[in-house]
Amino acid sequence: MRTIQYREALNEAMSEEMRRDPNVFLMGEEVAEYDGAYKVSKGMLAEFGPQRVIDTPISELGFAAIGVGAAMNGLRPIVEFMTWNFAILASDQIINHAAKMLQMSGGQFHVPIVFRGGNGSAGQLAATHSQSFEAFYANIPGLKVVSPSTPYDAKGLLKSAIRDDDPVLVMESERMYGDKGEVPDGEYLVPIGVADVKRTGTDVTIVSFNKMMKVALAAAEELQKEGIAAEVVDLRTIRPLDTATILASVRKTNRLVVVDENFPMVSVASEVAYRVQKDAFDFLDAPVLRVNQADTPLPFSTPLIDASLPNPARVIAAVKEVMYLRK
């Protein structure tokens, strides 16, 4: 199978859907003439023209609102945020408008819109540029949140998101745009709300998503050398959460570590842990542990970043703890 970059997979998803449906268009900062701040939309202006690939001023709230209004009036906008950190300015439109419209109109107006962009830490960018927002938005009924970790999932999930009749937030990663992975030539969709077991194992379950999947898989690889078979579940979608896949894995392994780049307080890990203690209590042989970004803003200096972000060593330590292997 051919391998392409994560950014190319996203580009293919958008381009295929724009060829398929004239109501789909892309707007955001630098998406057109600059080919995308992270080159995700490279070549799309040339193919689709300035009516459908639209550069905006730096007005996140304003262009998010224009997207939501356009979606209420029959279009299917893809709104790119340079990163989700900047989308905080647009959160009123996402949370108070896109997410609420269907209910407040008694089912009259739905909002088929995709908001997408890079999410999470991305090198030494300091605190305002280094946050993960899956938990923040997954808290909001009316939204769907996907957070793919591979080019294959990124393409399939973004295509599903564009076809979805509800607002879908796609959390990407500046750190993954260059990652290569296998993506078939033909068309496919990855359904929203379905997790994926990326590695099977019997001793412990590691649940993760987005670029923390790399950390989880690296830890699993190391653990294998010590004879510990970790099963790694990639959530892929955060809202709605595929609890069945998580529970099936935990019922098999009886132990769970969640690796999540979100801050620990009310994180994705918190919700996964709640669900597991609620529905698989009798299957647990140890308390659920989580490995999150530290409970501080992420600073600039490298040793401080290293001390904060999840890494394979921390995950391995957590796995050993739930297996009672640690001193």
């Binding site: 304003g62 609102a65 209004g69 979606a71 009036n73 439109q93 108070n96 407040m104 109109s105 107006f109």
Partner: peptide, 28 residues
């Protein structure tokens, strides 16, 4: 809201409808 009569709301967040209105016009 009244979709059939093209009433797009009724919005409780002061100013939220300003951008939405431009978006409705954008679609047309």
């Amino acid at each position: 809201f009244d979709k059939g009569r093209h009433l797009f709301g009724g919005h409780g967040i002061v100013g939220g409808q300003i951008g939405l209105g431009a978006g409705i016009a954008f679609a047309d």
